[in-house]
Each structure stands twice: as structure tokens, then as C-alpha cells.
Design a protein around this nucleic acid. Structure first.
Length: 448
DNA sequence: AAAAAAC
């Protein structure tokens, strides 16, 4: 199966080819032909399945015919977050380079001026987050009556974010005679209701969930007391062959503080969360993408859909409260068939959350075994002299295959040193008292 | 318990 078999135009095939793609993903293979035949579509798919191209490609060919008019966009793509909207816009540019199509990206957090100007000149495709779209509509800057193609992307996330009333009101402004595509990772009842109401006789496509069942990603949980999280993280960052990592925290304040702390310890760390203004978010993401920083501390704004190549590690500095978020976070690594590693820090308070994750992903996540008994301290207390700040290396998931004592010499040279050190020069870090062995709740299967 | 999204 190749892209050429799907009925796309030659100009488009050329753009796809020069983007480096030869073979469509399952969702692309299934979705593109019916979309080209102007059918409505429901796509059950996660990010990372090639979902975006499955609607962007046929849309480009559909829009290639016809003319744009001022204030009347011909198509609309709704996205839950600004970052996702921007990413879809990038895709449109990449694949639409051989077509004369105009696009407008309507997202909040940036000035309206350029967006209004683009609209007044006429656009073929509108890529928008609901808030800004509604705002511009109420100001009379857009007419949606010419919008004959609608994509509702990440519908379940829109639901989580309370966007469903906005979506309904936007749908009501579009002509009833239109083509609608809805993508969602899951089909909760409100989304089912939405699709029954706004889609007609849709083609239904479902593709496998990619991320957590992805065997490319080695997943571990790391029991840790809250006060030692930073030390343990630094240890893992230094010893687990981390090239590029995203560190997810549950709170924006944690993201900020952690990034600051990592920088203080000499790591090239950046941060992204919703308290930063949009230009700063974009700039941070760029710094991460170009490799100016190789560690990105992030809130869940970066959990879904964010497509950065070559992320070797995901760390859940906090266990996510919702198991779905785990799936999305971990899916930032192991992309495009690469291998990835995901570590989830688990404190005693996270017992329930981690059980929910394991219930959802369908298996117990193994506890990571450090080569050293007290890894963090071993690294932290070392003098900052000539010795490399590096503890023993811990290799991949498969302990049996680990060249067991390749690092033996290094181990030997370290251990006596640590023991010789006088006790008082090794002040115990502030602790909340839980530093002991792996507690039972982490050992037993959560899938009783 | 958080984060996200319009001004």
C-alpha cells in the first residue's frame, strides 16, 4: 500500500514524498479514500497514529478546487490547544506547498490583528481553538456560512476541557450541507451524542492505541519519597543515557521550580506550562526542538499530541492524576518506531493513581531497580572535582542482557570512597521519613 | 487535588 493508491493528486504526492513519507499509516490508508469521496468520518485514534495527515492530505485536494472569498473560510479545523492548532498549521504548510491555499491560525494568546487581516483577505482553511474563534465570530470578523468542511479533532479532550457547548454553537453556524470529520481517542457518551447530531452516515474507523502498548517504550515506576524526587531525577538524567527528555509535573508551580533547580545543577533545562504567554511557550518549544535545551519540564499542556522527534525519555515527576494523561505523556517518547524509556515517580500518596494507570494500560509497570542501593546520594555527595559526575550505568529494560559487570571497575573505585567519607560530611537531606524498601502496594499486581 | 482555553 502506498500513498499513490489512495487517490491523492500528483502535486500532493510529491509534497508527501519530499516530506519523507512513502507508506500511509493504517488510519491514513483507511480515512483518505472516504474523505476524498466527501463522506463524513469518525476516526477513533490517538495522536501518534498519523491522524493529522489523514485529514490534512485529503482536505488539500478537496480545497484545491474552488475559490476563496473574503471573511468566508471554506473549511475549519478545531483543536483543543494552541500548540496542537499550530502543529496542524505546520502540517498544512508542509503538505500544501504545491497548492495555492491560504490558511489562518486562530488561537488565543496572540494579537488578533494578523488573524483579522488574513480573514478579510479570504482563507481556504481555518485552524482554530474554540475560544478565539468564537471571539472573532462575535466581533463579526468571520462568516461561517461558506464552511463546507469541518474537522473536530481530539473531541474527547475538548469534552474534558468543557468545549462541547462551544463546539455545538460553532456547528450550528456552519451550513448543514457540509462534510464533517470527528477524531477522538475514546467515545464517551457526550461525544457519541455530538457525532449523532452533527455527522451524517459517517464512515467509522478505529485504529489501535499506539503509545502504552507500544513495545518500544520501556516503562518503569520509581518509588520515591516526595522530598527526594529531584535527587532521583538528577541521578536518572545522568545515568540512563538520556539524550532528550520531557519531565512532566502535575502543577505549573512544580514545573517552574523544577526547571530552575535543574538549571542550578547544570542541566540544560527549559519549561513549558500554561502560565507562560504564547510567544514564550513557542520559544521554549523551539529551544527544545533545536536542542538548545535537552530537558523540557512540562505541564500537561505538552502531554497530548506534541510531536518532537527523538525524545529518548519521559519522566513523570508526578504520577498523573488521570490515567489517560499517563498514556499521552508516555507517548511523547518512542515515536516513529524509535525506542524510548518512561519513568514514573510514585510516592505513597500515588498508590491509587498508579493502580488506575495499570488498569488502563493493562499491565503492571515494573519497579525500576537501581544498580546502587542509594543512587541519588551516591551522585549528590560526590565532590565536584575531577571525577565524572556519573554513577554506574543502568542499561535497558532487560536486565539479563545487561553486560553485567562492564562497569565493575568503576563500581569498585567508587564504593570505598563513599564509605571512607566521614558521616558528618554527608548530611542527610531533609526527609519525610519514607525512604525505605519498596512498599507492598508497588510490588503486588494492581490488577487483582 | 490540575491544566487547558477568550478578552
Amino acid at each position: 500500500m502506498s500513498f499513490a493508491d489512495l487517490g491523492l493528486s500528483d502535486e500532493l504526492l510529491q509534497a508527501v514524498e519530499s516530506a519523507g513519507y512513502t507508506e500511509p499509516t493504517p488510519i491514513q490508508a483507511q480515512a483518505i479514500p472516504p474523505v476524498l469521496m466527501m463522506k463524513d468520518l469518525i476516526g477513533i485514534a490517538q495522536t501518534g497514529t498519523g491522524k493529522t495527515a489523514s485529514f490534512v492530505l485529503p482536505m488539500i485536494d478537496i480545497l484545491a478546487h474552488g475559490r476563496r472569498r473574503a471573511l468566508m473560510p471554506r473549511s475549519l479545523i478545531l483543536e483543543p490547544t494552541r500548540e496542537l492548532a499550530a502543529q496542524v498549521a505546520e502540517n498544512f504548510e508542509k503538505y500544501g506547498k504545491n497548492h495555492d491555499l491560504k490558511m489562518a491560525l486562530l488561537i488565543g494568546g496572540v494579537q488578533m490583528g494578523d488573524q483579522v487581516k488574513a480573514l478579510s483577505e479570504g482563507v481556504d482553511v481555518l485552524i482554530a481553538t474554540p475560544g478565539r474563534l468564537m471571539d472573532l465570530f462575535e466581533r463579526g470578523k468571520i462568516l461561517l456560512t461558506g464552511c463546507e468542511l469541518l474537522v473536530i479533532d481530539e473531541a474527547d479532550r475538548m469534552l474534558d476541557m468543557g468545549f462541547i457547548p462551544d463546539i455545538e454553537s460553532i456547528c450550528a453556524k456552519l451550513p448543514t450541507n457540509r462534510q464533517t470529520m470527528l477524531f477522538s481517542a475514546t467515545m464517551p457518551p457526550p461525544i457519541k451524542k455530538l457525532s449523532d447530531r452533527f455527522l451524517s452516515n459517517p464512515k467509522y474507523i478505529e485504529v489501535a492505541r499506539p503509545a502504552t502498548t507500544n513495545i518500544n517504550i520501556a516503562q518503569y515506576k520509581v518509588p520515591v519519597s516526595p522530598r527526594k524526587k529531584r535527587e532521583v531525577l538528577r541521578h536518572l538524567l545522568r545515568t540512563d543515557d538520556v539524550s532528550t527528555a520531557i519531565v512532566f509535573c502535575n502543577r505549573k508551580t512544580t514545573v517552574r521550580e523544577l526547571a530552575k533547580s535543574l538549571k542550578k545543577h547544570g542541566f540544560a533545562a527549559g519549561e513549558i506550562h500554561g502560565d507562560m504567554d504564547q510567544p514564550a511557550r513557542i520559544a521554549e518549544l523551539e529551544r527544545f526542538k533545536d536542542g538548545q535545551v535537552n530537558i523540557l519540564c512540562a505541564s500537561d499542556v505538552a502531554a497530548r499530541g506534541l510531536d518532537v522527534k527523538g525524545v529518548s525519555h519521559v519522566f513523570n515527576f508526578d504520577t498523573p492524576w488521570h490515567p489517560d494523561d499517563y498514556v499521552h505523556r508516555v507517548g511523547r517518547t518512542g515515536r516513529g518506531g524509535a525506542s524510548g524509556r518512561a519513568f514514573t515517580f510514585v510516592t505513597p500518596d500515588d498508590a491509587e493513581a498508579v493502580q488506575n494507570v495499570e488498569k488502563l494500560t493493562g499491565g503492571e509497570i515494573p519497579v525500576f531497580e537501581f544498580a546502587d542501593e542509594q543512587p541519588a546520594e551516591a551522585v549528590e555527595e560526590k565532590p565536584k572535582g575531577k571525577r565524572p559526575q556519573r554513577a554506574k550505568k543502568v542499561e535497558g529494560a532487560d536486565r539479563a542482557e545487561r553486560a553485567p559487570r562492564k562497569e565493575t571497575t568503576e563500581m569498585r573505585s567508587e564504593e570505598p570512597r563513599r564509605e571512607r567519607r566521614p558521616r558528618r560530611s554527608e548530611p542527610e537531606p531533609a526527609d519525610d521519613g519514607w525512604n525505605g524498601p519498596v512498599p507492598e502496594f508497588l510490588k503486588v499486581s494492581a490488577l487483582a
